[in-house]
């Protein structure tokens, strides 16, 4: 039985590109700051030695990496579990059985809000951080998924272990 993967919203790619751009701009600002404010820059190499790799990295992440990541990111919900796959080069497919979910969260960062995106996070017991976080969903879809998941969890039949 193959899993019916659902892709995330295309604007997730824009979101990734924006994130890359912001991170690279911060790096660039630090670099420029060093060249401008450090009094003697003679020991530093020509700025191009940093500038060209910077540009290459920006292009790599902005075009190739974000496209690959967007392409691979997908989620699926079966009767028993929620699946998520993500990553571009290092790839992870994660499965969380629905009856192990502790709580569900919908979150929206600043950039996500401007793009009308949200991400849905499922938490399980035992591990510290977020466990399964589906990015690049429309806010409405995320809210809907959350509601349906919460319903499923609440209707979960439990049977006592004692006779086993």
């Amino acid at each position: 039985m193959a899993i019916a993967w659902k892709p995330v919203e295309p604007s997730y790619k824009t979101y990734l590109q924006l994130i890359v751009l912001i991170d690279m701009l911060i790096l660039a600002a630090i670099g420029i700051g060093i060249y401008v404010f450090v009094p003697t820059t003679s020991w530093l190499p020509n700025p191009l030695w940093f500038g060209i790799p910077w540009a290459a990295l920006t292009l790599f992440f902005g075009l190739f990496w974000s496209a690959r990541r967007f392409q691979f990111t997908a989620y699926a919900r079966t009767a028993e579990a929620m699946y998520l796959r993500r990553g571009a080069l290092w790839r992870l497919t994660r499965a969380v059985p629905l009856n192990r979910i502790q709580h569900v969260e919908v979150r929206q960062g600043f950039i996500e809000r401007t793009l009308g995106l949200a991400h849905l996070t499922l938490y399980t017991a035992g591990s510290g951080g977020a466990d399964l976080s589906i990015p690049g969903l429309k806010l409405n879809d995320a809210e809907q998924m959350k509601a349906s998941l919460v319903n499923t969890i609440a209707d979960e039949p439990t049977e006592d272990d004692d006779h086993a």
Binding site: A79, A95, P97, N99, P157
Partner: peptide, 19 residues
């Protein structure tokens, strides 16, 4: 991938109390 699906399915269908 097969094991992941099999195990996840088994866990999902198991309604014993786990906690």
């Amino acid at each position: 991938k097969q094991l992941q699906q099999d195990w996840t399915g088994q866990i999902g269908r198991n309604h014993q109390r786990w906690l």
